[in-house]
Design a protein around this nucleic acid. Structure first.
Lengths: 146, 146
DNA sequence: TATTGTTATACTCTATAACTATA
DNA sequence: TATAGTTATAGAGTATAACAATA
């Protein structure tokens, strides 16, 4: 759904955010990656971590991560290996092919951003970033929170 | 999913947009309305229209509108009546209770916006609005488009 | 034959609980 | 007994096609 009262700043931000997300997801698709798989790779970029920590970092349920990692492993982009120190744990790591995919992701997202924000100067983009950073994030009012 | 590279303006806008949308949906829920039902009422605010035109305005498939209008009618917030000029058509109209609900929606959304944008001055909110308006909307790159 | 609204179906996403293997 | 990962199941949301009534 879309197309409504953009005279409301909240709706405007919500709709433009959704549009931007859709544009980025499309770019990731062109780069050959399912959006959530790409997000997972990005999260793994800094270094290996346990499956549980990865799920926590992505703010998703550990059970949802299973299918994602199955796909990434099937595509040779990431690998799971047992933690010798605690054999219940899986250490998740990016492969060489995964690092290459990260490069393609970066290029595709950069291209999408150039299209989305091409009408703004660098200075204006910085202002937009600064204002967005000051939109209040109040966990107490999250949709699923209590 | 959330929590990722907000050093990318595209991701920042996408995530803040999603958060804002979630906050608004929560407000609509408090006002007693399912988000899509509230959106439908808002779309109907200017005046009655046919079910088909309503679906087109909301950019959803006509078949999805059926359940929404069933709920709105069950709650007494909107009414369908046959168009005498073309008995295939349904004219959809807001009821008095629906107008009252619109008032509650407006209050709830206003409250949510005060929380979300409370750290920004009126002038800054205007700047944010102006910048968001210039983010490129390119239908050719829509997720589901060809 | 084309159009309006409706129903039915399937597919994705997500949320939850139960299960296993290790600790 | 508690924890990490997995599996299974159910629910919401959405997209598509087939259908009945009317034009």
């Amino acid at each position: 759904m879309a197309a409504l009262p953009t005279d409301r700043l909240g709706f405007l931000l919500s709709f433009r955010g959704e549009l931007t997300g859709a544009r980025i997801r499309a770019a990731l698709g062109v780069a050959g990656l399912h959006p959530r798989n790409a997000m997972t790779l990005m999260q793994l970029a800094p270094g290996a971590m346990s499956q549980r920590d990865l799920a926590a970092a992505m703010e998703i349920d550990p059970s949802q991560l299973v299918a994602i990692l199955n796909e990434l492993e099937a595509d040779g982009l990431a690998e799971r290996r047992r933690d010798p120190a605690d054999r219940r744990r899986h250490i998740v790591e990016i492969t060489e092919a995964g690092a290459a995919a990260l490069g393609r992701i970066d290029t595709a997202v950069g291209e999408a951003e150039r299209e989305l924000f091409g009408d703004l100067t660098e200075a204006e983009q910085a202002v937009l970033r600064g204002l967005l950073d000051r939109v209040v994030v109040d966990p107490a009012h999250h949709e699923c929170g209590e």
